[in-house]
Design a protein around this nucleic acid. Sequence first.
DNA 1: TGTTAATCGAGACGGTACGTCCCGTCTTGGA
DNA 2: TCCAAGACGGGACGTACCGTCTCGATTAACA
Lengths: 215, 215, 215, 215
Amino acid sequence: MSRAGRTRPAEEAAPTTAWRRPPGRPRDPMAEQRILDAAIEEYLAAGIAGFTMDRVARRAGVGKSTVYLRWPDKDTLLVESVLARSGGIEDVDTGSLRGDLVELAGNLMRFLLDPVGFASLRVAVESVATRPHRRVAIEIGERHLAAATRVFERARARGEHVDEHAATLLTDCIYGAVTIRVLRRGPDQHRAPDDADITNSCAALVDSLLPLLDR
Amino acid sequence: MSRAGRTRPAEEAAPTTAWRRPPGRPRDPMAEQRILDAAIEEYLAAGIAGFTMDRVARRAGVGKSTVYLRWPDKDTLLVESVLARSGGIEDVDTGSLRGDLVELAGNLMRFLLDPVGFASLRVAVESVATRPHRRVAIEIGERHLAAATRVFERARARGEHVDEHAATLLTDCIYGAVTIRVLRRGPDQHRAPDDADITNSCAALVDSLLPLLDR
Amino acid sequence: MSRAGRTRPAEEAAPTTAWRRPPGRPRDPMAEQRILDAAIEEYLAAGIAGFTMDRVARRAGVGKSTVYLRWPDKDTLLVESVLARSGGIEDVDTGSLRGDLVELAGNLMRFLLDPVGFASLRVAVESVATRPHRRVAIEIGERHLAAATRVFERARARGEHVDEHAATLLTDCIYGAVTIRVLRRGPDQHRAPDDADITNSCAALVDSLLPLLDR
Amino acid sequence: MSRAGRTRPAEEAAPTTAWRRPPGRPRDPMAEQRILDAAIEEYLAAGIAGFTMDRVARRAGVGKSTVYLRWPDKDTLLVESVLARSGGIEDVDTGSLRGDLVELAGNLMRFLLDPVGFASLRVAVESVATRPHRRVAIEIGERHLAAATRVFERARARGEHVDEHAATLLTDCIYGAVTIRVLRRGPDQHRAPDDADITNSCAALVDSLLPLLDR
DNA sequence: TGTTAATCGAGACGGTACGTCCCGTCTTGGA
DNA sequence: TCCAAGACGGGACGTACCGTCTCGATTAACA
């Protein structure tokens, strides 16, 4: 997620040394967010084809130099905008493994059905193919995986016996099936399905797969 | 897969009437394939960034007009090139359901690990998001799905009892898991994994999921 | 005015030998004129920029090959179309030298004020600059000059003494002045000047210049 | 001669207010001339057929955008290039009316015999026909006319009596005759005629026409 | 109170590719 | 052999962006 720009205080490692503001006019702290927002809005409005640095800068009320000072090129800006927006795959904790998994699957499905969320899938797939951005895909993957991992850890902490292999399998199947099903219908099919529908179908999926844990 | 060009004999609805060649010089029947080939070669050589209509035309030994007569724009040409190349998800028939499924999963994984195959995934994901090409994604999906469907039908024909729901679930899980795992490592990680490795991991996946069929 | 096409009977020198029709389908005798007409219409309608071989052929109801069989390229067709249309600088004969010259000047002015006539000036100037068509400019010049020459010859035949040099000078001045004046106001200034106006101004011009003949 | 670009200081009407540079990077003041030069060179080297925007930009060491920022299209650039080059119809002042007129006629003839000068005639004739550029023709005309006007004014200042009508007539005849004679032989007939020849023929022309001033 | 230096909005710059248009040629089946 | 139709290879057009650059104006910390 690090940008090419010069380091900022928060990211510095110097623990004891006092931080000295670099000389010159400091960067506008608002610009960053304004640009990210403008980028997402442009992307959502016009798709990847209409996504133009000039337009993003214009919409953000910012000069192009201000953009290029922070992101080295268009692709990077797009990727980071999407990532910044699709950020929080919040942790889930319903008390039971089944409940957690249903919630997890539901979250992913809701996420992918949202245009920005789906965009992060596009970005991930695209970045797998373009060497320099592969990191992005991995990061997105990790983020979702981490939530699943914690769910299983909590289950073990509760005393349930969960085989490591089975857990991985379950995760891949749940995430994979959800993804493939969303791909089959596309995001935001003009009207997303009812929240209850999502939960129901995810519950059915999880219930079908749960037996795998018992060998 | 039909282009914007004028109708060709095979696509005509006229049942009894003899087909009359339209007036004027007929389109070069070779050009079509030469362009598609050149497009894939350019794409593989230079990636999406270096994919240029002029270069494709040049490589195909063709004028740009000849290209634009057949495909309305760069995106469409790229998509159809990839699709044309990623065509044959051949049918599998090993005699047993388990064997078929292992083969199916292996085919998909090998397909996705190949640059052109992975490109078709990119194209599918991208086309889900861009309304005008959604058809493409569906077509790719169908193509893979059809192979799975036939496998289950053959199983039923052999007398095995296969629940409809379970079959769908199995298909989604296998395809989903394979896809997600490929996404995790990317295509053509400089050297694709051994063919035996692929088969082994697919066998493990299928064996783990097969119990789902028995409720 | 000869085209690149194969020779036609009328242009042949064979005096006594019977002319044998060449084998194959004879050329459509109408096509020639239809194409010339269409060319002028297109030129007048859209100017040189909108003058397209495809459009000319289409308007003439003719295939492009039919055009190219008769004229080797666009420029030649345009030039010959204009020339064909601006053809007749009719002879004048009013009985007196002054009358003839006034008529001559008037004809030229009317000719240049007509869009097609002015086009022939454009074509002439242009063709002076483009080596391969220089012939055209000369031809146009000759055509106008010839009329003047005949006027002076007739004057001499009537017994008037007309110095050769003075005649040339007079011709150049009359034609030159008329041309320059038309250039100053442009052709078809939405509404051409009254025919009487033209005659009057030409008469004034000629009357002013006539004394030059008496040394 | 003004282009579509934004206003420059000199053209501004603000009388007392200080001029403020518009925001953004100012246009490269050299580019203008470099492009005009490159255009003329291309035109002279390859004629109108080989006159390509890409080549002009390349030769000027400039991007196409830089060209199109200043001239809206190829025709306009060509016209203005020619005009810029054919600029200086210098004033003449030999002390006598006859001397001035001979000089004037000689200048015009030399001008028209030079490829660039003749090009300006082409441009003028062409622009008379194409509404949007008519201004150009007028400007070229005025420029030459002005020199003649000043000659006659000076003559009057010297006390010579010069009738207004006669002066106009003389100008039209001289310019017209010279133009028509150049048209008859074309510019740069591989080798322009000797400078003395030009002067001689112009002197003869003027001497023949001078009597017109005395009624 | 300047001086220094980085950032800001704006927009011109050198490039490159797009998709369109047209030229002059070629290739059909039919006249 | 010509004809109408229209595809073909080639190449220029004018547009749109990219990522860089150059302005004058700001905005701090340092002197």
